[in-house]
Amino acid sequence: MPIPGTRHERYLEDNVGAAAVRLSDADLATLDSAFRPENVTGERYEDMSALGR
């Protein structure tokens, strides 16, 4: 799935072209193996609770 949103036409063309990318079952299995939830650690965002105090 391409991610929309760009300021430059050339990047928009890249995003549109991404819709044509097809991953094989082997590609998807490799990605699933590499990015298993149990292998991902840390916070998505830093703790920002102290800002503005």
Score class of each variant (00 low, 15 high):
33 S>D: 14
51 L>Y: 15
50 A>K: 12
37 P>R: 09
4 P>R: 06
12 L>S: 01
16 V>T: 12
1 M>D: 10
21 V>Y: 08
30 T>G: 10
4 P>Q: 04
10 R>Q: 04
42 G>Y: 01
16 V>K: 15
14 D>F: 13
17 G>Y: 03
44 R>G: 10
31 L>H: 05
39 N>Y: 10
37 P>N: 08
5 G>H: 00
17 G>R: 12
19 A>V: 07
46 E>M: 09
49 S>H: 04
19 A>M: 10
49 S>T: 14
6 T>V: 06
39 N>K: 13
17 G>D: 06
29 A>H: 09
46 E>K: 04
46 E>Y: 04
41 T>Y: 04
7 R>K: 11
50 A>S: 15
31 L>Q: 04
40 V>L: 15
42 G>D: 03
37 P>D: 09
51 L>C: 04
39 N>T: 14
5 G>E: 00
24 S>Y: 11
51 L>K: 12
11 Y>V: 07
44 R>K: 10
51 L>G: 01
30 T>M: 11
43 E>G: 04
35 F>N: 05
35 F>S: 01
5 G>F: 00
42 G>I: 02
46 E>H: 09
10 R>D: 09
8 H>E: 11
15 N>T: 06
18 A>T: 06
27 D>T: 02
32 D>G: 13
39 N>L: 15
50 A>R: 14
14 D>G: 05
10 R>P: 00
31 L>I: 14
28 L>Y: 05
25 D>F: 09
31 L>S: 03
43 E>S: 10
50 A>V: 06
20 A>R: 14
18 A>V: 03
7 R>L: 09
45 Y>A: 03
21 V>A: 07
5 G>Y: 00
48 M>N: 03
27 D>V: 02
50 A>Y: 11
26 A>W: 05
46 E>C: 08
35 F>C: 10
6 T>K: 04
35 F>V: 03
31 L>C: 07
26 A>H: 13
22 R>M: 08
34 A>N: 07
13 E>D: 14
8 H>C: 09
42 G>C: 08
43 E>C: 03
16 V>E: 14
26 A>D: 14
49 S>Q: 07
4 P>S: 06
12 L>A: 14
37 P>S: 11
34 A>H: 10
6 T>G: 05
32 D>T: 13
1 M>F: 11
2 P>M: 02
19 A>P: 00
39 N>C: 08
51 L>T: 04
33 S>A: 15
1 M>T: 07
47 D>Q: 03
51 L>A: 12
9 E>P: 01
17 G>W: 01
17 G>S: 11
24 S>F: 06
47 D>Y: 01
48 M>A: 07
28 L>T: 05
34 A>Y: 04
29 A>N: 10
26 A>Q: 11
